[in-house]
């Protein structure tokens, strides 16, 4: 894929759910090779925008939804393996449920070392903590081996140090990435473009070098006036609560 080729272009996209406007008049394009951070207060429409992008080019993307999309009964290994399903025949895929396929096993064990979930690889994921589950979900996305990564707060449940390392790994392994984040420092340091969403609209779309932390805070504050989100306090993680 040649760099700078436009992958997705949205033109005046609007979306309403149940009479409530979720996205209004969004126009933007994502080029291959870009690393885009999506920031904005809760309810700004980040998830909806990511889904919209995903639907345009599903075959190019590894999507990591907010709750991770894990299958509880399966082990961490199987959950990561799912990323490779398109590369495996049906019979092999079924056999893998009974007995892990050797080549995938090697590769996934390596991935698990990177994600630091080696010792949990064979327990079913309903036994894992919120942070561990999130790392399994990242594992699956990485194992998809797609050029584009779309992540909805992919590192929200892990500690800051790990979050940074994981984010680095994700960005290294994908040519293009659009990731929604709450951690504004990470957004500014690891991405080359930042899109700020508030109340379903794009408030700012520029190179990260043009922004700083206080500029971002202002967007949160403005949005907070009508959505009462306190800046700088990360929203609670529905996922962690759900599994706590």
């Amino acid at each position: 894929m040649s760099p700078h080729k436009t992958l997705v272009r949205l033109r005046h996209e609007s979306l309403s759910l149940g009479g409530h406007k979720v996205l209004s008049d969004i126009s933007l394009s994502i080029k291959s090779g870009e690393k885009v951070a999506l920031v904005g207060p809760s309810g700004a429409g980040k998830t909806t925008l990511l889904n919209l992008l995903y639907r345009r080019v599903p075959e190019l993307c590894a999507l990591q939804p907010q709750a991770g999309g894990l299958v509880d009964l399966l082990s961490a290994y199987q959950n990561i393996f799912m990323g490779a399903l398109e590369r495996v025949g049906t019979l092999a895929a079924l056999w893998n449920l009974v007995h892990p396929l050797a080549e995938h096993r090697r590769e996934i064990e390596e991935l698990a070392r990177l994600l630091d979930i080696e010792e949990k690889l064979w327990s079913s994921v309903d036994r894992l903590s919120g942070g561990q589950r999130q790392r399994v979900a990242i594992g699956r996305a990485l194992y998809r081996k797609r050029p584009v990564f779309l992540g909805d707060e992919p590192v929200s449940s892990v500690d800051p140090l790990q979050a940074e390392a994981l984010l680095k790994a994700i960005l290294e392994r994908h040519e293009t990435a659009v990731i929604s984040l709450h951690n504004r420092r990470l957004a500014l340091t690891h991405f080359d473009r930042v899109i700020v969403l508030a109340n379903g609209a794009v408030r700012c779309d520029c190179a990260s070098s043009e922004l700083d932390s206080s500029a971002l805070d202002r967007f949160y504050l403005e949005a907070g006036e009508d959505s009462s989100v306190i800046p700088g306090v990360p929203e609670h993680d529905a996922w962690a609560i759900g599994n706590g």
Partner: peptide, 14 residues
């Protein structure tokens, strides 16, 4: 959600 993280090409029994 779990289904959405898979490739759209993965269909059927798999």
């Amino acid at each position: 959600e779990p289904g959405r993280t898979l490739s759209p090409k993965v269909m059927g029994l798999r």
